[in-house]
Simulated assay, not measured.
Amino acid sequence: MGFWPVVVSRAVSVVVIASLVAATRAPWRLPSRLVGPAVFAGACGSAATVLYLLAAQQQILAVAAVLAALYPAVPVLLALVFLRERLNRAQVAGLLGAGAAIALVSLG
């Protein structure tokens, strides 16, 4: 199978984003201050997809599935650290639930 799923994933992302930009008549160029963060986010997304694919090929999907399940916690923690946002009760409950889920999966 190789890395075709990654190539297809990135190609579909480009088509969807281009369609949305065209439909909303948004500008095609990013402000120069946002190019670096956009490239970094894209590279991180591609790396995550490649690593998940490698985990599936190596049959260590149990670890990859737990880490992938933590994805919703990442934006909350990034906002907490970089934007200095405060967590509300639902976010704290979600993070605690994610932590409890990891503990339960590791016991199994």
Rank of each mutant, 00 (worst) to 15 (best):
P37V: 10
L54W: 05
Q57C: 04
A23Y: 07
L104F: 14
S19T: 15
G94Q: 11
A18M: 09
A62T: 11
S46V: 14
V74Q: 08
L83V: 04
S19H: 05
V7D: 00
L51V: 05
N88I: 05
S32H: 08
W28G: 04
I102A: 15
G42N: 10
G108L: 07
A18G: 13
L95A: 08
G2R: 00
V15T: 13
A43G: 05
N88P: 03
I102Y: 08
L61S: 14
P72N: 08
M1P: 03
V105A: 14
I60Q: 13
V8F: 00
L54R: 08
T49Y: 02
A79C: 08
L80D: 04
G42I: 03
T24I: 03
A23T: 01
V105L: 09
L80F: 15
L51W: 05
A79P: 01
A98D: 07
P5A: 00
A38C: 10
Q58C: 08
L80A: 12
L67V: 12
P5S: 02
A62E: 11
I60M: 08
L20D: 03
V6L: 09
C44T: 13
L104T: 11
S19A: 15
A69N: 12
S106R: 13
S9I: 00
V35C: 05
G45T: 09
R25K: 12
V7P: 00
A68H: 12
S9L: 14
A101E: 04
T49I: 06
A62W: 06
P72E: 07
V21P: 07
A43W: 11
G45S: 12
A73S: 14
A93N: 05
R33A: 12
V8P: 00
P27A: 12
L54S: 03
I60W: 05
L83W: 11
A69F: 15
V15E: 04
A55S: 15
A18D: 09
F82D: 10
P75R: 07
W4L: 01
G2K: 00
L107W: 12
L78C: 13
G108I: 06
A55R: 06
A47D: 03
V14K: 02
I102C: 15
A56G: 12
A69E: 04
V21S: 04
W4Q: 01
S9D: 12
G97S: 10
R33Q: 11
L34F: 14
L30G: 09
A98Q: 11
G97F: 08
R25G: 09
S32A: 14
L70R: 02
L107Q: 09
Q57K: 09
F3L: 01
G94D: 02
